[in-house]
């Protein structure tokens, strides 16, 4: 599952087309609308969170751009849901920055958020799916 915050700018030409509907229906993506300012037959801006399978996400993004929508991506962040994490250590195999590491001798798994690059490599590797993509709302 991939999720990103997007800022979409619509020109007059595309503002009346069912773009979001197509994203959901044709690309199997879910969205969460955070801000929308659209005037029919004029320009519009939408801020939304879009999530789905990474491949669908890429195709959806391409569809938006091909349709003439200007897409700006807002950086996300990866956080650990400590309720879900069962402290195995599987994620440490893929974390390139050392944000996820094992504390010895306890063999507990620590997450240093400040070292995380939000590459999302750990997300699908975690058997408990405890590494979650969150949106960095300050970046909007």
């Amino acid at each position: 599952m991939h999720a990103e915050m997007l800022v979409l700018q619509f020109s007059r030409k595309v503002v009346d087309q069912p773009i979001i509907y197509r994203l959901v229906k044709d690309f199997n993506l879910e969205f969460n609308l955070l801000k929308a300012a659209i005037n029919p037959q004029q320009e519009g801006v939408i801020v939304m969170e879009l999530r789905g399978h990474p491949q669908d996400f890429r195709r959806g993004l391409k569809f938006l751009r091909d349709a003439g929508v200007q897409v700006k991506r807002v950086a996300g962040e990866v956080r650990r849901n400590d309720e879900l994490c069962y402290q195995c250590g599987a994620c440490t195999a893929v974390c390139p920055t050392g944000a996820l590491y094992i504390e010895r001798p306890a063999m507990s798994v620590a997450f240093a958020a400040e070292r995380c690059s939000a590459c999302e490599l750990c997300c699908p590797v975690c058997p408990a799916r405890a590494m979650e993509v969150k949106l960095n709302r300050n970046a909007i």
Partner: peptide
């Protein structure tokens, strides 16, 4: 080689 546990010793 880095070694990686899959079983949770904590739990």
């Amino acid at each position: 080689i880095p070694t990686v546990p899959l079983s949770s010793l904590v739990r």
